[in-house]
Design a protein around this nucleic acid. Sequence first.
DNA 1: CTTACGTTTCCTGGTT
DNA 2: TAACCAGGAAACGTAA
Length: 274
Amino acid sequence: MVRQTGCTMSISSSVSTQSQLPAAWSTHYTSTDGSTAGILGRMWQETHPQLWSKFQVWEWLQQTFDVHQLDATCIPFQNFDIDGGQLCTMSLQDFTRAAGSMGQILYHSLTELKWNGHCGNELFSPVDIKTEIDDLLDIKAPYQASMGQSTSNPVTQVPEVKRKLNRPQEGQFKKHNPRGTHLWEFIRDILLNPERNPDLINWEDRTEGIFRFLKSEAVAQLWGKKKNNSSMTYEKLSRAMRYYYKREILERVDGRRLVYKFGRNARGWRESDK
DNA sequence: CTTACGTTTCCTGGTT
DNA sequence: TAACCAGGAAACGTAA
Protein backbone atom coordinates (compact mmCIF):
# COMPACT_ATOMS: atom_id res chain seq x y z
CA MET A 1 0.00 0.00 0.00
CA VAL A 2 2.46 2.54 1.13
CA ARG A 3 5.69 2.20 -0.68
CA GLN A 4 8.46 1.31 1.69
CA THR A 5 11.29 3.66 1.04
CA GLY A 6 14.84 2.69 1.55
CA CYS A 7 15.60 4.01 5.01
CA THR A 8 19.32 3.86 4.79
CA MET A 9 19.34 5.87 1.66
CA SER A 10 16.99 8.48 3.05
CA ILE A 11 18.98 8.87 6.19
CA SER A 12 22.24 9.36 4.46
CA SER A 13 20.84 11.77 1.95
CA SER A 14 19.02 13.85 4.54
CA VAL A 15 22.01 14.14 6.76
CA SER A 16 24.51 14.81 4.08
CA THR A 17 22.42 17.43 2.36
CA GLN A 18 21.57 19.27 5.53
CA SER A 19 25.01 20.75 5.70
CA GLN A 20 24.69 21.90 2.12
CA LEU A 21 21.81 24.21 2.79
CA PRO A 22 23.17 27.64 2.11
CA ALA A 23 24.08 29.59 5.20
CA ALA A 24 22.17 32.61 3.96
CA TRP A 25 18.90 30.77 4.28
CA SER A 26 19.41 29.95 7.91
CA THR A 27 20.87 33.27 8.92
CA HIS A 28 18.55 35.41 6.92
CA TYR A 29 15.45 33.52 7.79
CA THR A 30 15.88 32.32 11.34
CA SER A 31 12.74 32.09 13.34
CA THR A 32 11.99 34.50 16.11
CA ASP A 33 12.61 31.99 18.85
CA GLY A 34 15.96 31.16 17.38
CA SER A 35 15.26 27.46 17.23
CA THR A 36 16.68 25.25 14.57
CA ALA A 37 13.17 24.73 13.28
CA GLY A 38 13.58 28.02 11.47
CA ILE A 39 16.28 26.91 9.11
CA LEU A 40 13.99 27.25 6.17
CA GLY A 41 11.97 29.98 7.83
CA ARG A 42 8.69 29.68 9.58
CA MET A 43 5.91 29.63 7.13
CA TRP A 44 4.20 32.91 6.77
CA GLN A 45 0.80 31.38 7.41
CA GLU A 46 1.63 30.83 11.04
CA THR A 47 2.30 34.42 11.94
CA HIS A 48 0.54 37.69 11.60
CA PRO A 49 1.69 39.60 8.52
CA GLN A 50 2.97 42.34 10.80
CA LEU A 51 5.61 39.97 12.10
CA TRP A 52 6.76 38.50 8.82
CA SER A 53 10.39 38.49 7.85
CA LYS A 54 11.41 39.45 4.35
CA PHE A 55 11.52 35.81 3.44
CA GLN A 56 7.99 35.26 4.68
CA VAL A 57 6.82 38.20 2.62
CA TRP A 58 8.47 36.56 -0.34
CA GLU A 59 6.81 33.23 0.43
CA TRP A 60 3.45 34.89 0.67
CA LEU A 61 4.03 36.56 -2.69
CA GLN A 62 4.94 33.27 -4.33
CA GLN A 63 2.07 31.42 -2.75
CA THR A 64 -0.45 34.07 -3.71
CA PHE A 65 0.72 33.99 -7.28
CA ASP A 66 0.66 30.22 -7.28
CA VAL A 67 -2.87 30.11 -5.95
CA HIS A 68 -4.06 32.56 -8.55
CA GLN A 69 -2.13 30.68 -11.16
CA LEU A 70 -0.32 33.77 -12.22
CA ASP A 71 3.07 33.80 -13.75
CA ALA A 72 5.56 34.27 -10.94
CA THR A 73 7.87 36.08 -13.29
CA CYS A 74 5.44 38.96 -13.23
CA ILE A 75 6.33 39.65 -9.63
CA PRO A 76 8.64 42.59 -9.24
CA PHE A 77 10.36 41.07 -6.22
CA GLN A 78 12.68 43.99 -5.84
CA ASN A 79 9.67 46.11 -4.89
CA PHE A 80 8.91 43.74 -2.08
CA ASP A 81 12.26 43.53 -0.40
CA ILE A 82 10.60 44.53 2.84
CA ASP A 83 9.47 42.88 6.03
CA GLY A 84 5.93 42.34 7.20
CA GLY A 85 5.78 45.52 9.20
CA GLN A 86 6.55 47.60 6.16
CA LEU A 87 4.24 45.51 4.02
CA CYS A 88 1.33 46.19 6.32
CA THR A 89 1.76 49.92 5.94
CA MET A 90 1.24 49.72 2.18
CA SER A 91 -1.94 51.12 0.76
CA LEU A 92 -3.79 49.78 -2.24
CA GLN A 93 -2.13 52.50 -4.23
CA ASP A 94 1.27 51.39 -3.02
CA PHE A 95 0.50 47.85 -4.11
CA THR A 96 -0.63 48.98 -7.50
CA ARG A 97 2.52 50.99 -7.87
CA ALA A 98 4.67 48.04 -6.83
CA ALA A 99 2.92 45.25 -8.68
CA GLY A 100 0.75 46.86 -11.32
CA SER A 101 -2.45 45.03 -12.07
CA MET A 102 -1.45 42.33 -9.63
CA GLY A 103 -1.39 44.83 -6.81
CA GLN A 104 -5.06 44.57 -6.15
CA ILE A 105 -4.95 40.82 -5.71
CA LEU A 106 -2.04 41.11 -3.33
CA TYR A 107 -3.69 43.89 -1.40
CA HIS A 108 -6.88 41.91 -0.94
CA SER A 109 -5.00 38.81 0.07
CA LEU A 110 -3.05 40.73 2.67
CA THR A 111 -6.11 42.51 3.98
CA GLU A 112 -7.84 39.20 4.57
CA LEU A 113 -4.80 37.86 6.32
CA LYS A 114 -4.60 40.91 8.52
CA TRP A 115 -8.22 40.65 9.55
CA ASN A 116 -8.98 36.97 9.52
CA GLY A 117 -5.61 35.38 9.99
CA HIS A 118 -6.21 33.51 6.77
CA CYS A 119 -7.03 34.11 3.16
CA GLY A 120 -10.34 33.13 1.82
CA ASN A 121 -8.79 31.77 -1.30
CA GLU A 122 -7.82 28.15 -0.79
CA LEU A 123 -4.37 29.02 0.41
CA PHE A 124 -4.52 26.59 3.25
CA SER A 125 -3.90 23.21 1.88
CA PRO A 126 -3.07 20.50 4.38
CA VAL A 127 0.46 20.78 3.10
CA ASP A 128 0.71 24.34 4.31
CA ILE A 129 -0.61 23.56 7.72
CA LYS A 130 1.72 20.65 8.16
CA THR A 131 4.82 22.76 7.75
CA GLU A 132 5.33 23.40 11.44
CA ILE A 133 5.46 19.67 12.05
CA ASP A 134 7.61 19.16 9.04
CA ASP A 135 10.10 21.75 10.14
CA LEU A 136 10.62 19.74 13.26
CA LEU A 137 10.83 16.48 11.41
CA ASP A 138 13.12 17.84 8.75
CA ILE A 139 15.52 19.63 10.92
CA LYS A 140 15.52 17.76 14.18
CA ALA A 141 14.67 14.23 13.20
CA PRO A 142 15.34 13.49 9.56
CA TYR A 143 15.24 9.80 10.37
CA GLN A 144 11.64 9.80 11.45
CA ALA A 145 10.78 12.12 8.65
CA SER A 146 11.96 9.72 6.05
CA MET A 147 10.67 6.58 7.70
CA GLY A 148 7.42 7.48 9.29
CA GLN A 149 5.48 9.51 6.78
CA SER A 150 2.21 8.79 8.37
CA THR A 151 -0.67 7.36 6.49
CA SER A 152 -3.18 8.80 8.89
CA ASN A 153 -2.73 12.46 9.34
CA PRO A 154 -5.35 14.34 11.32
CA VAL A 155 -4.71 17.64 9.62
CA THR A 156 -5.54 16.14 6.27
CA GLN A 157 -9.16 16.83 6.99
CA VAL A 158 -9.23 20.51 6.27
CA PRO A 159 -12.48 21.96 5.08
CA GLU A 160 -12.23 23.28 1.60
CA VAL A 161 -13.10 26.91 1.79
CA LYS A 162 -13.72 28.45 -1.56
CA ARG A 163 -14.68 31.99 -2.23
CA LYS A 164 -15.08 33.89 -5.40
CA LEU A 165 -13.02 36.73 -4.03
CA ASN A 166 -9.75 37.62 -5.67
CA ARG A 167 -10.41 35.73 -8.85
CA PRO A 168 -7.80 36.63 -11.41
CA GLN A 169 -9.05 38.24 -14.53
CA GLU A 170 -9.57 36.12 -17.57
CA GLY A 171 -6.43 35.69 -19.60
CA GLN A 172 -4.20 35.62 -16.56
CA PHE A 173 -4.80 31.95 -15.98
CA LYS A 174 -2.21 29.47 -16.95
CA LYS A 175 -3.52 26.59 -18.98
CA HIS A 176 -3.34 23.54 -16.84
CA ASN A 177 -1.37 24.14 -13.75
CA PRO A 178 -2.60 22.16 -10.79
CA ARG A 179 -2.06 23.79 -7.44
CA GLY A 180 1.41 25.12 -7.01
CA THR A 181 4.22 25.29 -9.47
CA HIS A 182 5.82 22.62 -11.53
CA LEU A 183 9.39 21.63 -11.01
CA TRP A 184 10.73 23.59 -13.94
CA GLU A 185 8.90 26.69 -12.74
CA PHE A 186 10.32 26.21 -9.29
CA ILE A 187 13.80 26.04 -10.80
CA ARG A 188 13.12 29.03 -13.00
CA ASP A 189 11.91 31.09 -10.08
CA ILE A 190 15.04 30.37 -8.10
CA LEU A 191 17.06 31.55 -11.09
CA LEU A 192 15.00 34.67 -11.50
CA ASN A 193 15.45 35.76 -7.93
CA PRO A 194 19.19 35.81 -7.39
CA GLU A 195 18.82 37.89 -4.25
CA ARG A 196 16.89 35.01 -2.76
CA ASN A 197 19.06 32.44 -4.34
CA PRO A 198 22.24 32.03 -2.38
CA ASP A 199 24.24 30.24 -5.04
CA LEU A 200 21.87 27.34 -5.48
CA ILE A 201 21.61 27.58 -9.26
CA ASN A 202 23.53 29.82 -11.62
CA TRP A 203 23.04 31.09 -15.12
CA GLU A 204 25.72 29.75 -17.38
CA ASP A 205 24.36 31.62 -20.34
CA ARG A 206 21.54 33.96 -19.52
CA THR A 207 20.37 34.62 -23.06
CA GLU A 208 20.53 30.98 -24.10
CA GLY A 209 18.76 29.84 -20.96
CA ILE A 210 21.57 27.59 -19.84
CA PHE A 211 21.93 27.10 -16.12
CA ARG A 212 23.81 24.99 -13.68
CA PHE A 213 23.08 23.52 -10.29
CA LEU A 214 25.66 24.60 -7.76
CA LYS A 215 24.13 22.90 -4.76
CA SER A 216 22.15 20.08 -6.25
CA GLU A 217 21.16 18.39 -3.02
CA ALA A 218 20.17 21.67 -1.38
CA VAL A 219 17.87 22.47 -4.30
CA ALA A 220 16.40 18.98 -4.02
CA GLN A 221 15.76 19.57 -0.33
CA LEU A 222 13.96 22.81 -1.11
CA TRP A 223 11.89 21.13 -3.78
CA GLY A 224 11.06 18.37 -1.33
CA LYS A 225 10.08 20.98 1.19
CA LYS A 226 7.70 22.51 -1.28
CA LYS A 227 6.22 19.13 -2.10
CA ASN A 228 6.17 18.03 1.51
CA ASN A 229 8.52 15.25 0.68
CA SER A 230 11.44 15.00 3.04
CA SER A 231 13.14 12.24 1.08
CA MET A 232 13.64 14.16 -2.14
CA THR A 233 17.13 13.87 -3.57
CA TYR A 234 18.90 15.27 -6.58
CA GLU A 235 18.87 11.79 -8.06
CA LYS A 236 15.08 11.83 -8.13
CA LEU A 237 14.75 15.48 -9.01
CA SER A 238 17.03 14.98 -11.97
CA ARG A 239 14.87 12.13 -13.27
CA ALA A 240 11.94 14.52 -13.34
CA MET A 241 14.16 17.03 -15.14
CA ARG A 242 15.01 14.45 -17.78
CA TYR A 243 11.35 13.91 -18.51
CA TYR A 244 11.26 17.54 -19.60
CA TYR A 245 13.50 16.81 -22.56
CA LYS A 246 10.75 15.01 -24.38
CA ARG A 247 8.30 17.84 -23.76
CA GLU A 248 10.92 20.35 -24.84
CA ILE A 249 10.67 22.26 -21.64
CA LEU A 250 14.34 21.52 -21.27
CA GLU A 251 17.00 20.83 -23.86
CA ARG A 252 19.84 18.49 -23.33
CA VAL A 253 23.30 19.88 -22.66
CA ASP A 254 25.72 17.10 -23.37
CA GLY A 255 28.85 16.50 -21.41
CA ARG A 256 28.20 19.17 -18.82
CA ARG A 257 27.38 17.86 -15.39
CA LEU A 258 24.51 19.57 -13.56
CA VAL A 259 23.86 21.79 -16.56
CA TYR A 260 20.46 22.18 -18.20
CA LYS A 261 18.95 24.46 -20.77
CA PHE A 262 15.43 25.79 -21.12
CA GLY A 263 13.64 24.57 -24.19
CA ARG A 264 11.05 26.07 -26.50
CA ASN A 265 8.19 25.16 -24.20
CA ALA A 266 9.63 26.80 -21.12
CA ARG A 267 8.20 30.24 -20.69
CA GLY A 268 9.02 33.19 -18.53
CA TRP A 269 12.74 32.78 -18.11
CA ARG A 270 13.98 35.27 -20.67
CA GLU A 271 14.97 38.75 -19.61
CA SER A 272 12.65 40.12 -22.22
CA ASP A 273 9.77 38.25 -20.61
CA LYS A 274 9.97 40.31 -17.47
C1' DC B 1 -15.21 6.22 -9.93
C1' DT B 2 -11.97 6.92 -14.05
C1' DT B 3 -8.36 9.17 -16.43
C1' DA B 4 -4.55 12.11 -17.52
C1' DC B 5 -0.75 14.42 -15.96
C1' DG B 6 3.33 15.35 -13.54
C1' DT B 7 6.05 13.69 -11.03
C1' DT B 8 8.36 10.09 -7.47
C1' DT B 9 10.65 5.96 -6.68
C1' DC B 10 13.57 2.39 -8.09
C1' DC B 11 16.60 0.35 -11.07
C1' DT B 12 20.28 -1.11 -14.50
C1' DG B 13 23.90 0.36 -16.86
C1' DG B 14 27.03 3.89 -18.56
C1' DT B 15 30.18 8.17 -17.96
C1' DT B 16 33.10 11.70 -15.72
C1' DT C 1 35.02 5.45 -5.68
C1' DA C 2 31.60 9.09 -5.73
C1' DA C 3 28.63 11.76 -8.23
C1' DC C 4 26.22 12.25 -12.15
C1' DC C 5 23.50 10.92 -16.53
C1' DA C 6 20.01 8.10 -19.47
C1' DG C 7 15.82 6.37 -19.61
C1' DG C 8 12.45 2.16 -18.68
C1' DA C 9 8.91 0.74 -15.59
C1' DA C 10 5.66 1.28 -12.25
C1' DA C 11 3.53 3.64 -8.37
C1' DC C 12 1.51 7.78 -6.60
C1' DG C 13 -1.27 12.08 -5.69
C1' DT C 14 -4.20 15.36 -7.52
C1' DA C 15 -7.42 17.66 -10.49
C1' DA C 16 -10.92 17.26 -13.65
